[in-house]
Design a protein around this nucleic acid. Sequence first.
DNA 1: CACGTTTGTTAGAACATCTAACGCAAGTAT
DNA 2: ATACTTGCGTTAGATGTTCTAACAAACGTG
Lengths: 197, 197
Amino acid sequence: MGPRERYREQVRDEIKAHAWEQVATAGATALSLNAIAKQMGISGPALYRYFASRDDLITDLVLDAYRDLAETCEAAYAAGDTPAGRLTATAAAIRGWALAAPHRYLLIYGTPVPGYAAPPESTALASRIMRLLLDGFTAAGAAATEADEHALRFWTRVHGVLSLEVAGHFTGMAFDPARLFAAEVSSVVPPVSPPVR
Amino acid sequence: MGPRERYREQVRDEIKAHAWEQVATAGATALSLNAIAKQMGISGPALYRYFASRDDLITDLVLDAYRDLAETCEAAYAAGDTPAGRLTATAAAIRGWALAAPHRYLLIYGTPVPGYAAPPESTALASRIMRLLLDGFTAAGAAATEADEHALRFWTRVHGVLSLEVAGHFTGMAFDPARLFAAEVSSVVPPVSPPVR
DNA sequence: CACGTTTGTTAGAACATCTAACGCAAGTAT
DNA sequence: ATACTTGCGTTAGATGTTCTAACAAACGTG
């Protein structure tokens, strides 16, 4: 890799750093290429040498967020010692990751950006997390056909609490979201099996 | 009410109708006052006689959506005959409401719009739904202190499935969202009590 | 050293929200 | 019925956005 591409990569990273700052502050829809350029001391159109469009930049942010979440999950999963412990640790890691940067979580799981379509790469990263959950439930003794449902339930219950919490729909209600989250996680993680209908 | 206010109300409704059309098509962030004006055959700034700002219009849409959801829930709740039946019917009504207009659901429970802050009126409408659930669970025999947790769990589990489904995160995964939703609802609606940890 | 690719610049098109000032039509009051 | 007042719609413009086009300068490469 020549010095040209090295520089290019460096500027791209700087742009993304400023973009993340804006996303964390005001959300993804408020992301402004002009504002980023102003922060970097260059003119607006210069950014188009590095990202073809605003959606292109957002796509990159989405993929980075997905990758980071997948790695965070994998690290937490690996740190656990029992299957149940791995799954619980994974859930806790997801919550910590979401609360650390709510807009980053919403960038992935919130309202899809208007014209934007998720790249196929993102589904691959999402299934990386799914595979993790599947491994956990099969390791815990779930049948192969049931592991799918367990993993799905794990995911929807975790997301049900997190998305509402992150979007601020719990403010004003006097209860502890952490307790609710923990209860929901333990409701789906073995040895407490989820209720069958 | 004089003819002046009658006309004003009529124009406001027409504006909101076009706004809902745009929201349903491209989402709330793509809502353009200029486009609405063009559709109505009037000039852009004329709309500012009826809504002080774009956020003001969105606030009105949010409140209308909340109100509509609350009324839909109350109707479904009243239609059931047993407490469990009422709760199940309410859940089904919520899902139907969400799938009928995904962007309307996301307008309420999706990523909060950038600068926009939810008016206090919206929390009142949200608690109207909560009260419904509380009534249902207490009527089903839950202790007063437990009804809160049950209602909350009902809400997070319903939302966990719906928000992922509506945002399109289930596409490509070969399973029936309706089945998962029904299973999640029955997992939290009496007589099947949610698992305690 | 000279060449060519890449980068940053300015200018400008097309779109957005929103304010200001003006004219006109409609409802209201005398 | 006539005069008054209120409110609506217009155009013009300020300020912001994304993004394209054409040009200048700098840098790595032969």
